[in-house]
Design a protein around this nucleic acid. Sequence first.
DNA 1: GCCGTTTTCGGCCCGACTGTTTTCAGTCG
Length: 591
Amino acid sequence: MSLNTDLSDLFRTFAALMDIKGESAFKAIAFSKVSRILKDMTIDLEEACRNGTLKDLEGIGPSSQRIIEQYIKTGSSKDFNEVAASVPAGLIPMLEIPGLGPKTISLFWKERKITSVEELTAAIEKGTLDGLKGIGEKKIDAIKQGIALRAQASGRVGIVAALEIGQAMLEPLRKLPAISRAEFAGSLRRRCETIGDVDIVCALKNPSDGESVSAAFVKFPLVDRILGQGPTKSSVLTKGGMQVDLRIVPADNFGAALQYFTGSKDHNTRLRGLAQDKKMTLNEWGLYKIEEYDRSEKKPGFPPKAKPVASKTEEDVYQALGLEWMEPLLREDRGEIDAAQNGKLPKLIQLKDIRGDLHSHTTASDGQATIEQMAHAAKALGYEFLAVTDHSKGQIIANGLSADRLLQHIKEIRRVSDKMKGITLLAGCEVDILADGRLDFEDAILAELDFVVASPHIALKQDASKATDRILRAIENRYVNVIGHPTGRIIFGREGLPLNFPRIFKAAADTGTALEINAAFPRLDLNDANAHGALAAGVKLSINTDAHSTEGFGEMPFGINVAQRAWATAGDVINCMKLPQLKAFIQNKRR
DNA sequence: GCCGTTTTCGGCCCGACTGTTTTCAGTCG
C-alpha cells in the first residue's frame, strides 16, 4: 500500500466517523473530498510536504495538511486516533448496509449499545430495537434485507462484465415502442474501471407512458428480483446480482436527466455551483432561472412548470452554463470544468487513431495463435504494424523463450513480415524486469530486436523504494521502449508495486520511454489517474492489448477508455504514430 | 473543514422516495 492510499483511506474513515458522531456534515464532506484528492493524485506527497506545496492543492486546508504532515512524520495521526478511539470500529462497516445511514447507526449505538453488524443482526432477532423513535416495523425489515443484500452482493463488478449486463438490459429497452431514446448513465457511461450498479436513462415519446415502460423493464429476461418500480424510476437485481436502475423522463428533459445521472457526483456539484453563480438552478429536469423556478408549480415525478433555460440535450445544458460539451469520461472534477470554460478541453484519442498494437504473444511462448494468425487478425483491424513480443526465459510457466529460441523467433517474425502486404511486424520481446531491475536478456540480445517491452511479473510485493529503483533501472536501459503494465496490479486481485510515480515519470520523459496502458482486463495498468499524471509530466503512453489470441486484440477499447479518462490525445500515444515516426522514437533512445 | 475579486464569517447542491409521520428526518443517487 502506498502512502497516498493509506492517507486516502484514513480520511475516508475519518469522514465516516464524523458522520456517525453527528458532527457538521460539511466537515465530513470536506474530509471525503481530501480522501478522493489523495487517491487520484500522483504527486509525491512526502516531497510536497517538505517544500510546503501541500496547501496549494484545492480542497486541502490547514487541518488536513497538519494531519498529512504528522502522518508522514510519525506514521499515524493524533487527531484521527482520538476520534477513532471515541467510536467503536465496528460501526464503520455498518455504513455499507443499504438503507442504514450514520444517524440511525448512531441512534442504535447510543440507545442500544450496538457496535457491529453482528450485534445489529442479533438485536433484530431478539426484538430489542422495538420502541426506538423513528424505527418501525418496516424500517427494521428494510435493515434486515439490507444486511442480507450486503452479504450477497457486496462487490463491484469490472467494466467488461458490467457492459455486458448493461447491454442485455439496454437493448430490449430500446426496442420498446414507447421509448424514443435510451442511454447508459453513471459510472458505466463514464467507463470507470469498476462499476457498482448500472444506470440507464430513457426518454418517453408520450409523457404518460412511464408506468408501462417500468412494468416492461422489470420483466426483462435478465431480471432476478424487483427492488422498486414506479412511473419515473425502477430498480432491479439481475441474475448474477448486479443492480440496474432505470430513470424514465419526458423527451424534453432527456438531456438534463442524462447529464444529471451521468455524474460524477463531484462534477455535478461543481456544475450546480456554476448555475448558482448565474442565478440559475440545475436539477435532473433542467436548468432554470431561480426566480422562475421558485415561483413555478412543482409535482413530484414531473418536471416543474417553468420554462427551462436548457433541458433537451446535454449540449444545451453545458452551453447555457458557459461550457463546451465534454465527453462523459472527463467528468470527474479533475479540472475539466475550468478547461471547458477556457476552451481548453483535450481532443481525446479515439479507437480509430490506433495504428498498431505493440504488445502481443504467439504460440512461441504462451499465446494461442501463430505469428501469421496474429498478423492477419491485426491487419483485419486496419493496423499498420504489430509488435510480436513473446515472453523472455524467466517466464518458465509461460514457456518463455531462451536466447537461442528468441533469435530463431526473430527470423521467423521477419520472414512473415516480408511475406505480408499492408502490415509490418516488429520483432519484439516482453522481457522480464527482474526483482533488482536487471533485465532477463543481455543487451547484446536486446540489440537484435526491433522493439522491447519490459514488464514486472515477479516480486510484486516490494516496498516503494525497491520497486521504484527496479523500474527506474529498466527505464534507463537504452533498448527498452515501453514499460509493460508498470505496477503489475490486478483489479480485485492485487495492489501491484507501490511506485514513486513522480520519479518514474521524470525518468520516462527524460529517456524517451513510453509507459503502457495495458488494455486487458483486469489489468488496466497504468490506471487513469496515473496515466494522467504521466501525461502531465510529458511522458508518452503506449496502449496495448497484450493479446494472447486473435480475440485478445478486441480489448483495445478498454485501454482507449483509460487513456481518454487520463485526457490523452492521439499525439500522446506512440501507437498512433506512423511507422517511420515510431522507428525514430525507438532509434532516438538507442543513440 | 474549506473557501473567498460582492464574503475572513457564513455559506456549502438537488429531488425522489420511504417510513413514521400530522409536517418531517433519513437515505439514496
